[in-house]
Design a protein around this nucleic acid. Structure first.
Lengths: 320, 320
DNA sequence: ACCTGGATGGCAACCGGTTGCAAGAACCTT
DNA sequence: AAGGTTCTTGCAACCGGTTGCCATCCAGGT
């Protein structure tokens, strides 16, 4: 059994409250007593029980981080950045993955509720209404979704999509396929919105799709058949799957079809052809989300981070 | 403020203990009373506070999962498998990343200690002694490391390395470079052990290295210079970095040098050339680790899972 | 010598639940 | 109808800490 505050108190003949103060309000205890307590604590290997402490103070010094799919290489850098930032603030981050399932997401939030001081909700799949309801029980910072009155870290997807479309248009592409993501994705809606209001483009929408390589693979045939000369994909995984699928049909990228992804993940950089993509500031987003949570405690500041187009090898001039 | 057990008790004129039993021992309370309590609880949006419950019962229904680097694509499938398995057992998994830093790893374990019922330690970087000491405070299951008397899930790295070396030998390779991983990696030691006792091979060791693309990139020049015709890399990321580095020096894979990785991660499958690699049963390992933790509660069963060689395009005949 | 006030540390209530014990009620037995 | 079971529920202690309040002690001021 691990030593408790009582064991320490007994060991150095002092009341538990004194031991408690030694750790949580050192200035209230006599230096001599304090060092006796510290020595005894060290001797017994005592460590304050954070859960018990949280019960009275209401602060756990933990935060949750919920992502749709940890296997998507987009998330790990964001997660690491958040953990590093939190560590610097004396906080710890618990990560959980929802498997893209809104029910799991809700359950996870409920579980987390009293064990953390707040939750970073990344690319949620729940409805805005549900998120607002859950926000009554635990402070949120939402990443990649705009919800009124709720602190959020947004990446400027619209701007990125615009850059990508302009790039494609500049290469002579007119008919462009838009391969969107899953239902409930704010990012997907943003992309579609921008595309729809860009003049002079002939758009074909495909969706909803799984936001993974598999999703891209599955939609490849349809995209090839629709006659578009370029594709804007929901994310890099979808783009990679798509390229894989097109290759299987002997359709060359970028010779016959140009492909642009989103996120700038590692496999996209290693791929042949190297993927042209819109880079998302995942690291900055992870850091900001932590800061926002600790500062605001739930009040509604919104931060929007810029994105950038990275032109590599998967886009080229439209063929006649 | 979230509703507590007292609010519910007051709302339906019953003692708190009855409310408590309604949730944790329903058979002990009269069906009529129970439904009244449930109705009131539902009405108030009451949810038991898991942290408070854990204080008395000693069970949190949480487990920790600590990995060295969440950005390594090897881990996410393992993590997802563990989370899914845990969910089926009514448990939740909190994931944390140590950034390959033993100090962070230790700190993380200490933080987790009283908030979880056990910890899955994946590819730890701490010393065996330290892990044994920490195990006094919280049950562990170790993945990818053998520690006497401690439950473990091992992947048969030795067997995989043997398969890979035989494969290379069969292709006529004699001088083989072994690019190992970080200090403290059991996997790395296993590989080296097998290689050293395989007769008829001329081995060159390189290490320690960062277990990432960067690590592979950094060692590429030395590997090229040593005259080996084949490389066995610590993992796929290292292998990919290595191939990238060799390509930059105009050294073709597999024409001039063959490369075998470990793990079978997604980017390896998408790479050109597609990576020959030893597949690790990450999903099975995640599941097993959870089961082991819940069954054993710390007793020392060890499970070893087989690995398999997947020959793709990054290995070929040795050139004269 | 007396008063004042700050420093120190004990006391006990409290955080949100759980659980052993016992009392009262309802139901059987014979 | 007396005695014994089985249910159902309240009581209160407890899990490991925190914290407001109060008593004591000691030093300084006058």
């Amino acid at each position: 059994m691990a030593a408790t505050i009582k064991d320490v108190a007994r060991a150095c003949g002092v009341h538990v409250s004194t031991v408690s103060r030694t750790f949580s309000a050192p200035h209230l205890v006599n230096p001599a007593t304090r060092s006796r307590v510290l020595a005894a604590a060290d001797d017994l290997g005592y460590r304050p029980n954070r859960a018990a402490r949280a019960l009275t103070t209401g602060r756990t010094y933990n935060m949750g981080l919920i992502v749709a799919d940890i296997a998507n290489p987009f998330f790990p850098p964001l997660i690491k950045a958040a953990q590093a930032q939190a560590r610097g603030r004396d906080y710890h981050v618990f990560v959980a993955d929802t498997d893209e399932d809104p029910r799991v997401e809700e359950e996870l939030i409920r579980t987390l509720t009293k064990q953390v001081d707040g939750v970073l909700l990344c690319s949620p799949r729940l409805s805005n209404r549900m998120i607002e309801r859950l926000a009554e029980d635990v402070p949120f910072v939402v990443v990649n979704r705009r919800i009124k009155g709720m602190p959020a870290v947004l990446m400027n997807v619209a701007q990125g999509a615009k850059l990508a479309l302009d790039h494609l248009a500049g290469l002579g592409h007119r008919k462009i396929a838009l391969v969107s993501g899953p239902i409930g994705s704010w990012t997907s809606n943003e992309m579609q919105g921008v595309a729809a209001e860009t003049p002079g483009l002939d758009l074909v929408f495909f969706g909803p799709n799984q936001p993974t390589e598999t999703g891209g693979l599955a939609v490849a045939a349809d995209v090839a058949a629709c006659g578009a000369t370029a594709v804007l994909a929901y994310n890099d995984l979808v783009a990679l799957g798509l390229i894989e699928g097109l290759a299987a049909m002997e359709i060359g990228v970028p010779d016959q079809i140009s492909v642009v992804g989103f996120d700038d993940i590692l496999p996209g950089r290693l791929n042949r052809p190297k993927l042209t993509t819109v880079a998302m500031p995942a690291v900055a987003a992870g850091r900001m989300a932590v800061d926002l949570l600790l500062q605001s405690g739930g009040e509604g500041a919104t931060v929007t981070l810029d994105t950038a187009l990275i032109v590599r090898e998967s886009t080229g001039r439209a063929q006649k």
